[in-house]
Design a protein around this nucleic acid. Sequence first.
DNA 1: TTCCATCGCTAACAGTTGTTAGTTATTTAT
DNA 2: ATAAATAACTAACAACTGTTAGCGATGGAA
Lengths: 196, 196
Amino acid sequence: MAKIQSKRNSTKKEVIIEKASRLFREKGFGAASMRDLAEHVGVEAASLYNHIQSKSEILQTICFKVANEFMTNLEAVEASNQSTLKKMEMIVRLHIRMMLEQYEYVYISDHEWRHLPEPYLSNFLNQRRSYRKRLADIIEDGTAKGEMKVIDPYTAVLVILSAISGIDSWQRSRKSTTAEALESNMVKFLIEGLKR
Amino acid sequence: MAKIQSKRNSTKKEVIIEKASRLFREKGFGAASMRDLAEHVGVEAASLYNHIQSKSEILQTICFKVANEFMTNLEAVEASNQSTLKKMEMIVRLHIRMMLEQYEYVYISDHEWRHLPEPYLSNFLNQRRSYRKRLADIIEDGTAKGEMKVIDPYTAVLVILSAISGIDSWQRSRKSTTAEALESNMVKFLIEGLKR
DNA sequence: TTCCATCGCTAACAGTTGTTAGTTATTTAT
DNA sequence: ATAAATAACTAACAACTGTTAGCGATGGAA
């Protein structure tokens, strides 16, 4: 049942969301229109509503997909038996990979969450706050154990996360450098900055 | 001539731009309407056009005001006789202060430049690229002199700049910590991360 | 074949967008 | 006081917004 399969074994809904992610990143959620999106999907605007419920449903899907993926990975890191410094390195690497491999989704989750309607907005912000708090706890733990330098944990979290989310402007301007080189450079910088 | 002074010794045009900066940050450039802005200024939407030429002129004014201020300050730093590490520290401190003191303007210049119309968009991007190149040159110089660790200069620039621009999410959530504490924490982290 | 669900289409809705024209009110200069 | 300039107003424009209704085509299940 359900022949709705388009190319690449994906639902048409998934195709729509993928095209939308590209569009939302390029123009911003507010400036991207449904007719715009429809054209990229190769269909009339009204037809989109056979697969999705609303424009903001697309945004919700993207934002929470990303948020959940980060949260799941954080839990795995927390559960691992590693030094706090190693834990932070794992998280940094995860964020960089996500940024490189799922660029559009991560970018939108980072930049367009403002346009989420309530109650999703509050939900998203709570999740984000919780995520950062748990990162800060790791750093605080690292400081207590003498593995890391004495620094405000929340500031450190902010520095690390925003540094990584800034790769977006790298993405287009530096195809020359390899992803591995970028990753190791950023890890070196960010983790050395933490090391005591 | 010209009585157009409103309160606070500022032109009505300046008042409009100030109110607009707040609005553009909160809602995003695309989602903020002229009628919205007019209400905040205390006037009808059409009346705004006695003082400005278009909506995007406001965006242009803000973006280039910020860009020019950074560029001017960079030139001063370049001309100074300091170690490369000290130069980078000066730049970091400048960016943090700008972020804290002219939050709305800097935020918009950082996040809403996409909506600049051509040819201003290309102009802005050129200026940004040049700014980053000159920062990277300082770091490269520092590495050559053995003051800094061997790291890709452009990556370092990106880390530093995006880390600072991430203070926006700090701004609202951490009124408790003082600006000085934030500044010293970030300098410690970012500059130590550079130090050889 | 018949039936039914799925999907695409056209047309239209009600609302909002940035902006202009034309007019009136207010302030400044003579 | 009068003339000139400046800025506010109302009304309207054409274009565009997300979204719905309804109809026709398609294709798999019975």
